[in-house]
Design a protein around this nucleic acid. Structure first.
Lengths: 248, 248
DNA sequence: GGAAATCAATTGGTCGCACCAATATTATAC
DNA sequence: GTATAATATTGGTGCGACCAATTGATTTCC
């Protein structure tokens, strides 16, 4: 024996997860590790190694003294993954932004095609909060929620997962950039000024106009960012990590 | 002692990975597990558990007898993640398809805006392969490569990562559906007929036309799929797993 | 001298068991 | 019936051993 299992254990664990019954309290609980080890004919440490992977991906949640439970997938894994990818230089911040913009365009389109009145009202409210914000952070938070709300309007968990994962990684970078933008005279006004067009396009249920408004939104914002970047003291904030060796 | 580390070890391992130097043979190699355990002041089994997570995510690659190496992120993690999410019923196949279509639309747009002559030639070649395919599998393979090539034309690793992850999960389902579509008289012809428009739009560097062509592509395909779905013997293939309990 | 076979060191993979710490359950006291 | 305490369950870590694959140096052979 003592040969690598080729992740047969991993596959079996997936089956166990899929076959797991719902608890009396509505929780989907897995058998104890010691039981799983016996059932799969493997050592407990081996089971634990596989479970650790599933936990880091967000598929299960383990609580000492309680048990192992199947969990809703969360955007954390996308964050962790891209966070490492960015830091390792395999992808640049700029490339992540481009991917995010592509998704946002489509989100705007879908959101416009089946928005409820409540959705429109909430977007309008968030815009008001944004405009009347007294601190920079307050305005940025409303801006973030504005885009998040748009994603939720697609009613598609996959889209929400992806956009939240991308946004969370970019949030740090975007935050610093936006703070700089807003410090420029009339910076906040110009960036905020692109939001009403988005809201109106969605209120009119006009997908094409929504995409166009989103395009304009990013265009203005990047214009501001690049004008900021040309100044000396903030150039470093826009740097992207160097790419690593060979990439296929 | 013996208290949960709150993943401090995990964070430290990420730092080690980021600080890892390039090998003489160009490989980025991590210290042996036994050394890492000593450096981090923790047991080897603990180090292994964290490394297992990173390996399943695709950040590192471990080879027995050789060592642990930092690896290019691969789409496998997205596949594993969404595969489980689909099987657990947190997301449906239909929702994944919608997300993929959204990305494909934008991919077509970006591809059209900066395509090289080689790109266009390759797309045209793949279409020819598709048309003259003698077996169903041959045609499907060319179709798959066609869409993959489009994704690569964005030159954005994030987009490629996402679309490959989504496609790999959907591939099984899509394969069965497409096989059915092509078995309908003139099924393959009608679906294939939407490809030239995509190629031509890209050859003309017309982003709007490319998106419209992609829309038409999916529209025809789904029309075929739904007509197939209405027949008795294949209805089960289009089923989506039931959604689970509470989802936030 | 060079290529192939051999051997020992290195390194990741698993095992087995012990113990710690947090939670859940049961028993007990009031 | 409720609150407290004791007990059992369960995940988290430690420790040391051995297995299996790779690597690199050594030897052997031509």
């Amino acid at each position: 024996m003592y040969s690598p299992d080729e992740d047969g254990v991993f596959e079996q664990l997936k089956s166990v997860i899929l076959a797991a019954e719902t608890d009396a309290r509505g929780r989907v609980r897995l058998p104890p590790e010691r039981t799983l080890a016996e059932q799969l004919g493997v050592q407990r440490s081996t089971v634990r190694e596989r479970l650790a992977s599933l936990e880091n991906i967000g598929v299960i949640r383990r609580t000492r003294g309680s048990g192992t439970y199947v969990q809703m997938p969360n955007p954390g894994f996308v964050q962790l993954y891209f966070d490492l990818a960015v830091k390792l230089g395999y992808v640049s911040v700029d490339e992540m932004e481009r991917a995010r913009e592509m998704l946002e365009r489509e989100i705007a389109r879908i959101a416009a095609s089946h928005a409820t009145d409540d959705d429109v009202a909430e977007l309008a409210r968030l815009y008001e909060v944004m405009v009347h914000a007294r601190t920079i952070e307050e305005g940025l938070e409303a801006d973030y929620e504005f885009h998040q709300r748009l994603a939720y309007m697609t009613r598609n968990p996959v889209v929400i997962l992806l956009i939240e994962g991308l946004s969370s990684v970019l949030r740090e970078v975007l935050y610093r950039r936006r703070v700089l933008v807003r410090r420029v005279p009339a910076g906040a006004e110009r960036t905020n000024a692109t939001h009403p067009a988005i809201v109106e396009a969605i209120r009119a249920r006009d997908p094409e106009a929504a995409m166009a408004a989103m395009d304009e939104h990013f265009r203005v914002w990047e214009e501001q960012a690049s004008s900021i970047a040309s100044s000396r003291d903030s150039a470093s904030l826009l740097e992207t990590p160097p790419r690593n060796q060979d990439s296929p």
